[in-house]
Amino acid sequence: MAETALAQPGRTTRRVRVVTSAVIVTAVALAVLVVPPLAQLDQQAVDLANKLDPPSLAHPFGTDDVGRDLLLRCVYGLRVSLLVGLVAALTATVIGTAIGALAGAFGGWTDRVVMRVVDALSSIPHLLLGIFIVAMFRPGVWPVIVSVALTHWISTARIVRSEVLSLRSRPFIDAAVSGGASRTRVIVRHLLPGVLPQAGLAAVLMVPHAMWHESALSFLGLGLPAHQASLGNLVQSARGSLLAGDWWPTLFPGLFLIIPTLALAGLAGAWRDRINPRRKSELML
């Protein structure tokens, strides 16, 4: 039928997108997990004779302003950025889910107080708050993680709360209460399971976001110490050479940030399509 193409826009396109994303994410995971221990190469090895070499066979991504291999630096940088992203996103999700679920499930005063706090926090720009938090610590990985986690649970809390609120008013919750279910049982058995997929999705979507945040903090010189390769640091230290026309120290770390984060977002999108209520079309009987 002619409608086929219209009714199901790009089923194949979507599949291609998912597969590509999955391949990239797998490749990235392998690279950051396997390369550093196997390669036995020193990413910090300075080689002033070969500083700012353009991409070549020996250095496929070229070298930086002190002659370090950029490919290696990028892999290490990605490793650090991913670690920060994952841990920060997970922490933020746990905090957000707990707070959102409590606010939604209890309602009333609890909800009002929590939501006012959330509103107040979200009125401050993320980055500003993040900068404020890292500024209180000595530069390092953990302050960055804490800063990103503490600024990112808010959206998850909002999502989880609204999800819990919409579930809570469903008759099936009433039926559970009528059937003798305790408050805990209602939350644990009926509310949380319904919310977890959304929270998980929020977590995955947050990883790229957190990576960008880490990069931004590092780029501003507030994140990781300068010698530690993170994607943000790499781009930051390459600023000077970019003005001199040396494009590779900026481009490759940039791509290393953009491509994996897009791939992650692509996978998250596919997941969202799965967990959202199945489309009516297949069930219209």
Partner: peptide, 29 residues
């Protein structure tokens, strides 16, 4: 007090089989 609502779709936890649906009050108590 037992209660039945108008819309069965909204009255049933979508993740549970009908068997579990019927069994829930027994488990709760």
């Amino acid at each position: 007090v037992g209660v039945v609502f108008q819309q069965p779709r909204l009255s049933a936890d979508p993740r549970l089989s009908l068997r579990e649906l019927i069994a829930q009050p027994l488990r709760s108590t």
